[in-house]
Design a protein around this nucleic acid. Structure first.
Length: 461
RNA sequence: UGCCCAGUAGCUCAGUGGUAGAGCAGGUGACUGUUAAUCACUUGGUCGCUGGUUCGAUCCCAGCCUGGGCAGCCA
């Protein structure tokens, strides 16, 4: 008999006989002449209620159907006589596929997120993490759908890279050299010309530069893949390994870039709102009571858009005293970004045109000579979710920027070539996949939206 | 990396300078429809580790370990 998922069974249009359901027992309630099993198979948040009559031969091993055990049930799907569910299964046979003894850590009670992190191999079977990872899957699908439906080409940029001076944080080294006795040069330094790639290599911190190559061939492209930062960060919104989406668009300026970022964020919210309604309601009930109203608010209103200079003015004129005083030319601190998006505007905010001194070499210099076309999208509760810019397409200005940032032109000859041969205005941004997932679920810690999170000192599972 | 908070039963927590308790989980029994079922009984502890103060430390002090929060870095 073909297995029916719990999701299909619960959505059934009529009785089904016979039916086969397989899954894991969430809880069992015994009465005198029968037992209730709640069976969940991850296909949806809810479980399917199974009634096992004491008269069945298989009732002999009902005691083995404990929380966490895997079972196969055959029987018939019938309208439930009880409250709380439309359908239930009256069992004819019950097979225990795998027992779960009393040491099974997941109980039918609330657990702390910290405890569940320690059992990352079992937490997907909990309500919360089941919902998180179903939404994660849907969100990934929605990302591809958004770009594919607009004719963007999906580019696989390399995970191992030799670019080490882009400035997007500390890098993980990739090497096959013997850590105990690496080959040395005459001056005593490690001789990386004898390493696997005959030079220093690292895990990527961004696929942007390679995405620009593809944008200058396919016009509209996006990347979606893992990214690695060796920063010693201990916050709820940083991980050593995370996923990032980086669209890159040729023949596009900063305004078009901001338009796309806003449209993208909204489309993702709309998709999850529509296709993960049950899971989102669970988050709204147990994680963040304001979740649905906030998501709907974001959908309905345009993002506030203001220049860095205007943002600084707002911060200077606010009554608020900040731990770090703000002045033109310094980076916006977390507290400043939070004030703008959570207190002043109470809305997503796109800040653009930052001072050139605090931004990387590839961003396009504005006519004022002081600012570059950087843009950050800030959202309440998380802060920066998107960072992007229009790229410098003018060869001479790019070379000036590189000199100013102390970057060797030779290391980026292929990147500079894009400006030498058929250069075009282009722009792009990076969206943190996990941060977006935090935003749509209301989950407050990035470690709880990644199946097996990597953070400094933690590489379990 | 800096600052702050917390480690007591499997989980969530209370507690006291005289070696410990609750709820849930587990076990046993009861119950003809439960919904984190209910009711009765019940098993269960190197009070994170090491040292110090003290007649005596789970409690006070120091160091360490682990977890968490905030900041920086950013997505």
């Amino acid at each position: 008999m073909k297995r029916t998922t719990v999701k299909e069974a619960l959505a059934s249009a009529g009785p089904v006989d016979p039916i086969l359901v397989q899954g894991w027992v969430r809880t069992r309630r015994d009465s005198k002449g029968f037992s209730f099993l709640e069976v969940n198979d991850g296909s949806c948040l809810k479980g399917l209620q199974v009634i096992v009559d004491a008269a069945l031969p298989d009732y002999a091993h009902i005691q083995r159907a404990t929380t966490g055990a895997s079972v196969a049930v055959t029987g018939s799907l019938v309208p439930s006589k009880g409250q709380g569910q439309k359908w239930e299964v009256v069992a004819k046979t019950l097979a225990i596929l795998g027992e779960a003894d009393a040491t099974y850590p997941l109980q039918k009670k609330g657990h702390t997120l910290e405890f569940l992190r320690e059992i990352a191999h079992l937490r997907p079977r909990s309500n919360l993490f089941g919902a998180v990872f179903r939404v994660r899957s849907r969100l990934a699908y929605a990302i591809h759908q958004f770009f594919q439906s607009r004719g963007f080409v999906y580019a696989h940029t390399p995970i191992i890279t030799a670019s080490d001076c882009e400035g997007a944080g500390e890098l993980f080294r990739v090497t096959t050299l013997d850590a105990k006795a690496p080959p040395l040069r005459e001056d005593g330094a490690v001789d990386f010309t004898q390493d696997f790639f005959k030079k220093k290599a690292f895990l990527t911190v961004s696929g942007q530069l390679e995405a620009e190559v593809f944008a200058c061939a396919f016009s509209n492209v996006y990347t979606f893949g893992p990214t690695f930062r060796a920063e010693n960060s201990h916050t709820s919104r940083h991980a050593s390994e995370f996923w990032m989406i980086e669209p890159e668009i040729a023949f596009c300026d900063l305004a078009g870039d901001m338009d796309l970022a806003e449209e993208f964020v909204k489309a993702l919210i709309r998709d999850v709102r529509e296709h993960c309604a049950e899971d989102l309601e669970f988050f709204a009930k147990f994680v963040d009571k304001e979740l649905l109203t906030r998501l709907d608010f974001v959908l309905e209103r345009p993002f506030v858009r203001l220049s860095y200079t205007d943002a600084v003015d707002i911060l200077l004129n606010s009554e608020k005293t900040f731990e770090y005083p703000i002045s033109w030319g310094t980076n916006l601190q977390s507290e400043h970004e939070r004030y703008l998006t959570e207190e002043h505007f109470k809305s997503p905010v796109t800040v653009y045109n930052y001072p050139k001194e605090i931004k990387p070499f590839y961003m396009r210099l504005n006519d004022d000579g002081k600012t570059v076309t950087a843009m950050d999208v800030l959202v309440p509760g998380i802060g920066e979710i998107v960072g992007g810019s229009q790229r410098e397409e003018r060869l001479d200005v790019l070379l000036d920027n590189m000199r100013r940032h102390g970057i060797n032109e030779k290391d980026y000859s292929w990147y500079v070539d894009l400006r030498r041969f058929g250069t075009v205005p282009h722009a792009g941004f990076g969206l943190g996949f996990e941060r977006m997932l935090m935003f749509v679920t209301g989950v407050g810690n990035i470690r709880d939206v990644i199946p097996f999170a990597r953070t400094p000192g933690v590489c379990e599972f």
